[in-house]
Computed example of a mutant assay.
Amino acid sequence: MTVTVAPKPTKTSTPTAVPSATPAPIVEPAPIEEPELVPNPAVGQPIPNAPAPIVEPGPAVDLGEAPGARGSTTSNGDGSLSTYTVVEGDTFFDIAQRFDVPVQQFLHMNPSVPGLGEDIYLKQVINLDWTTKR
């Protein structure tokens, strides 16, 4: 008996086309245009913004004690709040909040308070009357 062996199949490769990446076109960014300043015709310079007006809010209103504003108040003859005395734990911001007065206005009413309100001390008298300054 003769055995015949079939030949092994040979591997053949079929070439496949691999698409190559097309480079993206280079796009130059548009130049940034600077805004043009409007000159003041009188002096040839830009016109600055006017300062913000100080709005007088009216009399202080006591909204009640709160953490950071637990001191006592005094009133003038017509019953309007006049002064506030600082106690331990008070902050200028909390005092302004208690009396419903914006901090900037409170600073304007109390120009003698140093450090933009950061430096208040025990028993210091704070002005609550918007018609006077201390």
Rank of each mutant, 00 (worst) to 15 (best):
I47G: 03
V87M: 02
I26L: 09
T12N: 13
P9F: 09
P41A: 15
F106Y: 08
V3A: 14
L107H: 03
G71D: 05
S20V: 12
P31N: 05
V27D: 12
T85E: 13
G58F: 04
S72F: 13
D78H: 10
G58R: 07
W130V: 14
Q104N: 09
E36N: 11
M109L: 08
E28K: 14
R134F: 00
P23H: 04
A52F: 06
D129K: 02
D94V: 05
F106N: 01
P15Y: 04
G115I: 00
W130L: 10
T85K: 15
F93C: 00
F99N: 00
F92K: 01
P67F: 02
A24N: 15
G64C: 04
V103R: 00
W130R: 11
A60T: 07
I95W: 05
A6W: 06
E33V: 15
P51L: 08
P9A: 14
N49K: 12
T2A: 15
A24C: 05
F93P: 01
D94S: 08
R70E: 15
T22E: 10
G115Q: 07
V101L: 03
V55L: 12
V27W: 10
A96G: 06
D62I: 01
P59T: 10
P19N: 06
P31Y: 09
I47N: 12
E28M: 11
P35M: 06
P29M: 01
T12P: 06
D62A: 05
V87P: 05
M1L: 08
A96L: 03
M109I: 12
A50L: 11
T131G: 09
G89P: 00
Q124L: 05
F92T: 00
A17S: 14
P46F: 07
A24G: 11
A17F: 13
N110E: 08
M109W: 14
P15A: 05
P59V: 07
K8W: 06
E36W: 01
L37V: 08
S112K: 14
D100L: 05
L107C: 09
V101E: 00
T132E: 13
P29L: 01
K133Q: 13
D62R: 06
S82K: 07
Q45F: 09
Q97I: 10
F92A: 02
Q104Y: 02
W130I: 13
E65D: 15
T4N: 15
S112Y: 12
M1A: 13
E88N: 11
P15F: 06
P67R: 03
D100H: 01
T2C: 11
K133D: 10
T74V: 07
H108L: 13
E28S: 11
P9L: 12
V86F: 04
K8V: 11
G115E: 08
G79K: 05
Y121G: 04
K11R: 07
P111T: 00
P48S: 08
N40G: 04
M109Y: 07
G79V: 06
P46T: 12
P59R: 11
S20C: 05
P114G: 03
A96I: 04
I26M: 06
Q45I: 12
D62V: 02
P48I: 09
A52K: 14
L122K: 14
A60V: 04
D78P: 02
Q97F: 10
L37C: 02
T16E: 08
G71N: 02
H108I: 13
P29R: 00
I47K: 14
D62H: 06
G89L: 03
V61S: 11
